[in-house]
């Protein structure tokens, strides 16, 4: 299995280096406008939060997979895991937040040793939409995870899982050998207990992101293709497909540079720039919480270590009202969320 950029001491693992790349070259010469300059054209600067709807909590960067595009640089060699103490602080926030969606992510959040306790406690808060981003293969990775579908069902968890393509070749190339077959098996198990079926309130959504230096196509057309292929080939059902654009950070940035696609990709994002997507970009309705309890405008800013521009920077002194009164930190990676129909952890936004 491949190692993370961090374990390989790759230059790109350094967030300052990523910021340097995103601020130099084509953006320093003026060949392309910076994101700040672009949103100023439509009087959308500074970007400000709207109503808080989603609390996204990253339970750690440990994962059983090493996906080639991963913006978290997650993998088995990543040991950063949220402690129970930080989880307790998160629970206090979950009990009183205005947000209607709780979104647990990682790495593989299930690998956190306190994951089940945290889910049980968080479910008691009665939040409307409780999402766990499961990579599917974790369910088949070890016997101790085999009952996860039943556990999710018991706590009314909305399962959101990555699936880059309906074919084995494309999926395994991006996510690792054998991932496709394990994912199919896990999806069938979720279907077997009611997840993803038409009319079922056990929500199962899939996330598609392109397996290369190109943007996602139309979300609805892709969903139709996925549904047809997965039904015909494996009798699998799911509710919705979220098409997500790869942002030029971490492993994907490393790929773009190594394959000499970086400039063309940034041009593609600019060519597809959509001011309407800026209006609903996910950082305007989300707070991202890191495994250490730091607060960010989004999961991508978390990976670039760009903490919120607020007096409130940590879950330990969380204050939603104060936090909502802030300017959102932007940089050139934000073009990834504003191309075409836009992109967020919940799919298109425009």
């Amino acid at each position: 299995m491949k190692k993370s950029l961090k374990a390989r001491n790759n230059d790109i693992a350094n967030t300052a280096r990523q910021m340097e790349i995103l601020s130099s070259g084509i953006f320093a010469t003026g060949e392309l406008p910076t994101f700040a300059k672009k949103i100023k054209e439509t009087n959308q600067f500074p970007l400000r939060p709207k109503k808080l709807e989603i609390l996204q909590i990253n339970l750690g960067y440990m994962c059983n997979q090493v996906c080639s595009h991963c913006h978290v640089d997650a993998g088995p060699d990543r040991k950063e895991i949220m402690t129970k103490e930080t989880m307790e602080q998160c629970l206090e926030v979950i009990k009183k937040t205005e947000a209607h969606t709780l979104d647990l992510t990682g790495g593989a959040p299930e690998m956190n040793p306190n994951f089940r306790w945290f889910v049980e406690e968080a479910a008691k808060a009665g939040i409307k939409d409780f999402i766990v981003r499961s990579n599917l293969t974790i369910i088949r990775a070890n016997k101790k995870y085999h009952d996860l579908p039943e556990f999710f069902k018991k706590h009314g968890v909305h399962v959101v899982s990555s699936m880059p393509h309906w074919t084995r070749g494309k999926t395994d190339k991006q996510r690792g050998d054998g991932v496709f077959d394990k994912s199919i098996k896990a999806l069938q198990e979720l279907n077997a207990i009611g997840y993803g079926l038409e009319g079922s309130n056990l929500k199962l959504d899939l996330v598609y992101n392109p397996s290369g230096a190109f943007l996602p196509g139309d979300q609805q057309a892709l969903e139709n293709d996925f549904k047809k292929a997965l039904k015909n080939d494996f009798d699998i059902n799911f509710h919705s497909l979220f098409a997500i654009t790869n942002l030029p950070i971490s492993r994907f940035l490393d790929f773009l540079i190594a394959s000499d696609n970086y400039e063309d990709y940034m041009h593609s994002l600019l060519d597809a720039y959509n001011p309407a997507a800026v209006e609903n970009v996910m950082c305007t309705n989300t707070i991202s919480i890191s495994w250490e309890g730091w607060l960010y405008d989004c999961d991508f800013n978390q990976m670039l270590n760009l903490k919120v521009a607020s007096k409130v920077k940590h879950i330990s002194n969380y204050n939603e009202e104060l936090l909502q009164d802030r300017d959102i930190i932007i940089n050139q990676h934000c073009y990834g969320c504003t191309a075409g129909a836009g992109s967020s952890c919940q799919g298109v936004v425009a």
């Binding site: 393509h165 070749g169 190109f214 196509g217 139309d218 057309a221 293709d225």
Partner: peptide, 11 residues
């Protein structure tokens, strides 16, 4: 080629 990939077309 890029457009086909974006639309999920296989090699």
């Amino acid at each position: 080629t890029k457009d086909s990939l974006q639309r999920g077309v296989t090699k």
